[in-house]
């Protein structure tokens, strides 16, 4: 490619771009190349006003190959995953899936990812769920546990160690 971003002197990275396309193809989704930048996604983006997520510009940058900038950005971690952008896209494209693919790339490249996601991942690896059963409060500010409410124990794999091992290996895999 012959583009250079003069603000950062970055050049498009076709290899990284192909990785996104590979992932999307694994999901049978269209690659961002067909986006004509109408901005309908950003007009309705749930995360734009509060967190300044611009799906159309993510599509644009992915299309042009400025992947590194995206992978290192905080922007991709602000998506609320409401799928409105995909639903409304007149070109049948899916910005939200491009964003997922970018986040996967960031993780694979060992970038620092937000602590919330980090915690969630560790918890799933540790005991299979994103969080442990909590003691909750009722309206009278009394604590309640599952047992108190006659609920059966939370499901858990019998051999959690084994599941853990499989999961550890799975996180190194790619869709294609």
């Amino acid at each position: 490619m012959s583009l250079i971003d003069l603000t950062s002197m970055a050049e498009p990275d076709e290899e990284e771009q192909e990785k996104i396309e590979e992932t999307l193809e694994g999901l049978k989704e269209d690659i961002p190349d067909l986006c004509y930048q109408c901005g309908k996604c950003t007009s309705g983006c749930e995360a734009f006003i509060l967190l300044e997520l611009e799906p159309h510009s993510i599509m644009g940058k992915s299309k042009a190959g400025f992947i590194d900038e995206l992978v290192n950005s905080d922007e991709i971690w602000t998506c609320m995953q409401c799928f409105k952008c995909q639903e409304r896209c007149p070109q049948d494209l899916s910005p939200v899936r491009v964003i997922f693919a970018l986040k996967n790339l960031a993780v694979a490249a060992g970038k620092e990812i937000p602590s919330g996601y980090q915690k969630m991942l560790q918890s799933v690896l540790g005991n299979g769920l994103i969080q442990q059963p909590k003691e909750v409060l009722n309206r009278a500010n009394e604590t309640r546990k599952r047992e108190d409410l006659d609920l059966p124990p939370v499901p858990e794999p019998e051999d959690m160690d084994k599941v853990q091992q499989i999961l550890m290996k799975a996180t190194q895999e790619k869709l294609r």
């Binding site: 901005g39 309908k40 309705g44 983006c45 409304r88």
Partner: peptide
């Protein structure tokens, strides 16, 4: 006002 963009809804 020419607004270059599509409303979502």
């Amino acid at each position: 006002n020419f607004v270059r963009g599509r409303p979502s809804e």
